[in-house]
Amino acid sequence: MRLSPTYLLFKDLVTGLLITLRTFFRKPVTVRYPHEKVQVFPSFRGRHAMVVDPETGKPRCVACLKCSVVCPSRCIKIEYEVDEKTGERRLREYILEALRCVYCGYCEEVCPVGAIVLTEWFEYSGRCREDLIFNLEKLVQNWKEHVAKWDKEFYENKYWVLKGVPLKLKPAPRRMGLVVKIKGVKVDG
């Protein structure tokens, strides 16, 4: 090896240096993060939010408990009350521990009404544990913050649509899609 022309003429080193030299004239790929923000792709599994119906202004959740059953890390707890007359369930509290969540997206996939959603909001933190245990109020607040940043007219999550999945596997209310209208609706907060 030591007597080969490659070795004696430093061909290996020159080849390597030429490759690095070529990179010298290319555009850098580094993103200077806090100053430049990376745009995540739609349906990125980020911070949780509770979708608010734009017409009534109430959370979409119907307390079916599917999300809390399916969650592999068991981080969702739901409290609800049953209406004596109609038998309708009313959501009282929805507690989601973001610290336990593994962001698998099962909850938003099973939700029949598209209420719980993992938004494209990826940078968030808290100063204590309680900051990251989201209750209903906090989840609605998360949704409002997400909507305020969303610049399109509609919001629809890919996990609500589930393209290519047989109709039989989708919950009935979701088969027609669950687009949320965002523009033209007054959002406070």
Binding site: Y7, D12, T15, G16
Partner: peptide, 8 residues
């Protein structure tokens, strides 16, 4: 490969 395969 150019950087490594023949590099001494």
């Amino acid at each position: 490969e150019g950087l490594l395969s023949e590099n001494r």
